[in-house]
Amino acid sequence: MAKLLVADGLRKAFGQTPALDGASISVGAGEIVAVMGPSGSGKSTLLHCLAGITQPDAGKVRYEGRKLTEMTDRERSALRRGKFGFVFQFGQLVPELTCLENVALPLRMDRVRRREAERRATEWLERLEVTDVAGKRPGEVSGGQGQRVAVARALVANPRVIFADEPTGALDSLNGERVMRLLTQSARESHAAVVLVTHEARVASYSDREVVVRDGRVRDLTGASRG
């Protein structure tokens, strides 16, 4: 499998506390990788570095061979907008916009016309089985619906990588399962890779492969630790 996203020897410290200490990971195109580990192990920091949200203190991140770590803030921003999608645990939908407008937002930011953006957003709401909330505001929908709207928003711009940080963390297991099923299913259908940060094994089991972050390093469990 061609490697889409490769990180090598990432180090990142917040103050005196090291979050990443030489972490390496690679994600293939269309591959769903679960990043597991106890809380505080640096999972989220790893995701932030991979997505170009945070710059590591040392180490490199490559996306399709381009070095994220050497891009300007503007370039990384454009990359996140165009090639990446994001699902967070909660609070990611703009409360004033309707769910439909929220889903259309990434398209609109890429200067797609409103009508077209909302048409495509409607399609995604259908795929994620939340058509009925299109006109509602995020405050008026259930947690599970909100997360599915968020997944729709993450996928709407046809990204190559979805970064999901505890996407089911605020949901009960039934709703969590549903979100995970729809997320992975949709990602597979659009051939998008997924980097899934979770501490729950059941959520991770939706992936193709798990890695564990421990003491700031990524360990592949199938053999010797890597990096």
Binding site: A201, R202, A204, S205, Y206, S207, D208, E210, V212, L221, T222
Partner: peptide, 10 residues
């Protein structure tokens, strides 16, 4: 063992 458990869960 973890890897094996995870594999089965997958």
């Amino acid at each position: 063992q973890t890897a094996e458990h995870l594999r089965l869960m997958r």
